[in-house]
Design a protein around this nucleic acid. Structure first.
Lengths: 159, 159
DNA sequence: TCTATAGGTAGCGATTCGAAACCCATTTTT
DNA sequence: AAAAATGGGTTTCGAATCGCTACCTATAGA
């Protein structure tokens, strides 16, 4: 039967510490955001983010080490370097947008000038939600933990 | 017309710095996770997370100050205090799960013992995705920024 | 009363951050 | 070709933060 509480002890089983290991430091998410916005060069990140060069250098190499960004020397101008999102890095978009939507909703951003839209129809994207396997939106109290051996067994309603 | 790049300069317009202001420090997300798992008392957070007491105290008061948690003295035992998620705090669930799914996928968690399921049918929840207003799943390259005045105008395909 | 529990603070060394200066290879300008 | 500017860093060093341990106070239980 599924447990109501997840055992916090065994971190080995949880993706959150792993994610925070990579993205949990200061500036990491802002760098990611900048990368999604198309910035690729060191100086671009530096000037747009206003972050100290040593810290930026440190974060960029860490993100590269963890496979979020890919660092390639620029062929055209050999002084330059390109930092591009990998597939792994691009997969952080839902997390980043969810965080961002939350910050916008509760952080006092009432009438944003720019709105993120679907390019195909120019309409705003939906708030990011949690969905069951069949696409129903579900909330916190609809969730349960279940051992991998007993998937599919509906939990009793009682507890 | 929508801009391809979001101006990073005006942070006032972006929810991400606001979100990171609240949740960007070390342990904040782990505390949130613990709260989602039903922990409510200081000693519970302390022992389960293994975090130093002064840091924990600092984070909890910060989360309370920002309205993520609500601190109420426990009526039954006046030594105790309860930290509970507010609606604002509970709204972080999609962001936390997205981050967590990402960490699990890429962080080498191959065969998790416990799986997050929909309590109604015992089936695993879906990966968190980005959706257009009409519920289509969309990806990074389908996104564009549009000024609030010109919503609904489809962008030309050319640029 | 005596002890244990809950929720913190205080002190202090270790780590990390951040501003500024410096460095060196590669363009670009003159 | 020489001089200057650019790109991507590293070094240094003071300031802030982290984290461990010890301590404190109010309440509850034995």
């Amino acid at each position: 039967m599924g447990k109501l509480r997840e055992p916090l002890k065994d971190m080995a089983n949880c993706g959150l510490p792993a994610a925070l290991e990579v993205m949990g430091e200061r500036w990491s998410f802002m760098i990611l955001r900048a990368a999604f916005n198309g910035l690729i060069h060191f100086e671009e990140f530096s000037s747009e983010l206003g972050i100290a060069r040593n810290i930026l250098s440190n974060r960029l190499t860490k993100l590269v080490d963890h496979g979020v960004l890919e660092r390639t020397p620029c062929a055209a101008d050999r002084r330059k370097v390109e930092y591009r999102l990998t597939e792994k890095g691009a997969s952080l978009l839902p997390a980043m947008l969810a965080l961002r939507q939350w910050g916008a909703k509760y952080g006092g951003i009432v009438d944003p000038e720019l709105i993120l839209v679907d390019a195909r129809d120019g309409k705003p994207i939906a708030p990011i939600t949690i969905r069951a396997g069949d696409d129903r939106e579900i909330g916190w109290h609809d969730l349960a933990w279940m051992h991998r051996d007993e998937l599919g067994k509906k939990k009793p309603d009682c507890c």
